[in-house]
């Protein structure tokens, strides 16, 4: 293996950070991992933007708003290999269960006429990202190279995938590691 560390960026879009927590379940294997890997943009580092030579981007969560689109595009642009991590990134997951309710109804329920709403108004600050009318999986917005299923994928999934990549092998998850739940 070369001495130059592989740059990995991670982010959670419309997700719950559960996939990130599962990643941390690598526990002591993280020590081995950081021998070969350097974290770039990630909640683990607080780096705000990807540097332009990232090798691997791990993305949790689907695409539910305009900011998600911008972030996803940044990752696609800056990372050589882009990976959809977890059910939400792969099929929209739980956030996509709002897809059968119109966005108008969602917003009205949450901000206008839902139970317990005070001072009803739709948030309109220009700093806020706008919601897409549907939540989309990542592969419907940018090209995705690999998919790690699971809710969340177990630490073993991350380990198997990353060690394959680091060893220069084509990543392939064994049967035991493919779970959708």
């Amino acid at each position: 293996m070369t001495t130059k560390k592989v740059k990995v960026a991670t982010v959670s879009l419309a997700g719950c950070f559960g996939c990130h927590m599962s990643f941390l379940d690598l526990d002591e294997r993280l020590v081995d991992l950081v021998e070969h890997v350097q974290f770039d943009r990630s909640p683990l580092t607080d780096i705000e933007h990807c540097s332009d030579d990232c090798d691997i981007g791990l993305i949790e969560g689907g695409v539910c708003n305009s900011e998600n689109v911008h972030v996803l595009r940044e990752f696609r642009k800056q990372c050589k290999i882009l990976v959809a991590v977890g059910a939400c990134a792969i099929n929209g997951g739980l956030p996509a269960m709002r897809n059968h309710i119109s966005l108008e109804d969602c917003l009205n329920e949450a901000y206008m006429d839902g139970i317990g709403v005070e001072n009803p108004q739709i948030p309109s600050d220009v700093e806020l990202p706008l919601l897409l009318d549907k939540v989309h999986p990542l592969h419907e917005v940018v090209k995705i190279d690999y998919f790690l299923p699971g809710c969340p994928p177990s630490a073993d999934v991350f380990w198997a995938f990353l060690t394959d990549l680091l060893a220069g092998r084509e990543p392939a998850l064994p049967y035991e590691l493919i779970h959708f739940d």
């Binding site: 966005l103 108008e104 917003l107 739709i122 706008l130």
Partner: peptide
Amino acid sequence: SLETARRMANRNDAAAHL
């Protein structure tokens, strides 16, 4: 796909488009 949100938030600034 941002149209509904734009209309309801009454926004049309640059960040309200993709």
